[in-house]
């Protein structure tokens, strides 16, 4: 998997935000990771300190919010929890492949000083 490159990009975005705010240190990164994003949270955590080393984010903590996947049923016009790309609407049993949530890979916030 490519969690190292994902983490590199997350830290790059964090550094950009910190710089724009004139901050000296980054203390925390908050990521949102969808259940179907393909990224493995433990691998992201493993990559995190490696990528932060030597930057103003060195020693920062990493929060990962896991976003469960949600499918959308066009017949019921309703959302439902699902585990996969393809899922069955619990109301009408139609198979749907329309995801509303679950593929997120987002830097939500950074805590700086």
């Amino acid at each position: 998997m490519h969690e190292v490159s994902l983490m590199q990009e997350a830290v790059r975005l964090a550094l950009e935000s910190a710089q724009a705010a004139g901050a000296q240190h980054i203390h925390r990164l908050a990521l949102r990771v969808g259940a179907l994003s393909g990224a493995v949270p433990d691998a992201l955590r493993f990559a995190f300190p490696l990528v932060c080393a030597g930057t103003i984010a060195q020693g920062a903590t990493l929060d990962i919010e896991s976003v469960p996947a949600a499918g959308w049923c066009g017949y019921c016009q309703a959302e439902y929890r699902c585990e996969d790309y393809l899922s069955e609407c619990p109301r009408c049993r139609q198979i749907s492949a329309e995801l509303r949530r679950g593929t997120e890979l987002e830097l939500a916030a950074v805590e700086v000083s």
Binding site: L6, E9, A10, L13, A14, S17, A18, A21, A23, Q24, H25, H27, R28, L31, I56, Q58, G59, A60, E104, L105, E106, L107, A108, A109, V110, E111, V112, S113
Partner: peptide, 26 residues
């Protein structure tokens, strides 16, 4: 939090949370 060498006193180093909301694949 591991403050770097020249970090000011605790009181001055007020933490601030910046919302970012950017996709890592953007």
């Amino acid at each position: 939090h591991a403050h770097g060498a020249g970090a000011e006193s605790d009181a001055a180093a007020a933490h601030q949370t910046l919302p970012v909301r950017r996709s890592i694949l953007e």
